Amino acid sequence: MKYLPTDKKVIYWSLKMSNLTTSMTEFLLMEFSDTRELQILYSLLFFLTYLAGLIGNLLIVIITTIDRRLHTPMYFFIRNLSIVDACFISVTVPPASINALVNNRIISIRGCAAQIFLVTFMAFVEFTLLTIMARDRYVAICQPLHYPVIMNPRVCIQMTLTCLFTGLLYASFHTGYTFRLSFCQSNVINQFFCDIPSLLKISCSETFSHTLSLFASALVIGVACFAFITASYIRIFSTVLRFPVKEDQRKAFSTCIPHIIVVSLFLISGYYVYLQSPSDSGSIKDIILSIFYSIIPPFLNPIIYSLRNKQIKEAARIIMRRKCLLRNKA
């Protein structure tokens, strides 16, 4: 190599990097722990959390589908959110837990691309659905007489389909843009699942334009949704504080505050992971923050929207009684 002319050195290095890029067919994900026993323990804890979140979300879907009394816009969006949460938590946790148990860190490039697309898509749909739910609460509390007209079934379906369609476009753009980059420095991803910031960190391509597009799109969507949610809740709280009965105020606050907590947790942790510079990514810190936006919200949503909701609990009791009666008759 040292005997080659300068221009030939450049050509040789470019070919070498190109060969490395094209020959890379897989990535290595980060382990939960260097100790095998802790790795198994963490994977089991993650999997138990996944099962709890999955079962809770599926129960909400089943209950709100079977009980016709819950066929209202509010429970329509809660059911859609539960479906998204069940899919969201299934994309990352089961593969990571199984890989930890069998001590396998390998993920193919296609598998990584699929995971990035699904995570981005689910996160986008989750946040936009939470925004629509704030709108639903605003209309229900501030404009109760016009609620059936404003939030009619056709409008609810249109808003949901808009979330899904724009989410597909958003995820497709950023997934395709990410895998146009070259990965020749390392194939080790400092995360327990594939995400865009971790791939930007190990790319040997120029990532400024990609980082800028990711920052700009996330900032515009996030700020717009957050501003809409904030404005909705300011109007909601100003209306609730004028309620003459304290019990009505308490009920209204009890339904709104958990929603605000979930939105804040999801937004802050997700923004911190996705909008920081790739060079500033820290593996342990990123993993903890990724848990807060990819696992905790899908796990908490069933608790917030079922255990604290009398109508869902009553519907669950009725369904259980029906099943018991059918078993006794059989």
Rank of each mutant, 00 (worst) to 15 (best):
R79H: 08
R69N: 11
R79M: 10
I62A: 08
I63D: 00
I40M: 15
S23W: 11
V61Q: 03
N80E: 11
L41W: 11
L54T: 11
E37V: 15
D34R: 05
I78W: 06
T21N: 14
L45Q: 05
Y42F: 13
R69S: 04
I78M: 06
F47I: 03
L29V: 01
E31S: 10
I78C: 05
K16W: 06
K16C: 10
L41Y: 11
P73V: 15
P73K: 03
F46G: 01
M74T: 14
M24D: 08
R68S: 08
I62H: 05
T21Q: 13
L48H: 07
T49E: 07
L29Y: 05
K16P: 05
L59R: 08
I60T: 06
T65P: 02
F27I: 00
I66L: 14
S43K: 01
I66W: 12
N19S: 14
L15Q: 15
L38V: 09
I60K: 00
L28S: 08
R68F: 02
T25M: 08
F47T: 01
S43H: 08
G53W: 03
T49F: 08
H71Q: 11
L58G: 01
S14V: 13
I55M: 08
E26M: 04
P73Q: 10
E37Q: 14
L59E: 10
L20W: 09
E31T: 03
I63M: 02
S14I: 14
K16A: 09
T65C: 11
D67H: 00
T21C: 13
M74L: 14
E37N: 10
L15K: 09
P73T: 15
L41P: 01
N19R: 15
G53R: 00
R68I: 05
I66E: 06
S18Q: 15
L70C: 05
L70K: 00
G56P: 07
N57L: 04
R36A: 07
H71T: 04
L70M: 02
T21L: 00
L70G: 03
M74I: 13
F77P: 02
Q39G: 03
I78N: 06
E26R: 04
F27W: 04
Y50R: 06
N19Y: 13
F27Y: 06
S14P: 03
I63F: 06
R68M: 06
I63L: 02
L41Q: 15
S43P: 06
L51W: 12
L20C: 12
P73D: 01
R79S: 09
D34I: 11
Q39N: 12
F27D: 00
S33Y: 06
Y50D: 00
L20F: 10
L38E: 12
K16D: 12
Y42E: 11
Y75N: 02
E37R: 14
K16G: 10
L29M: 00
M24P: 01
F27L: 02
I66T: 11
N19E: 15
S18I: 09
I40R: 12
Y75R: 03
S18A: 09
R68G: 04
T25S: 09
K16S: 10
F47H: 09
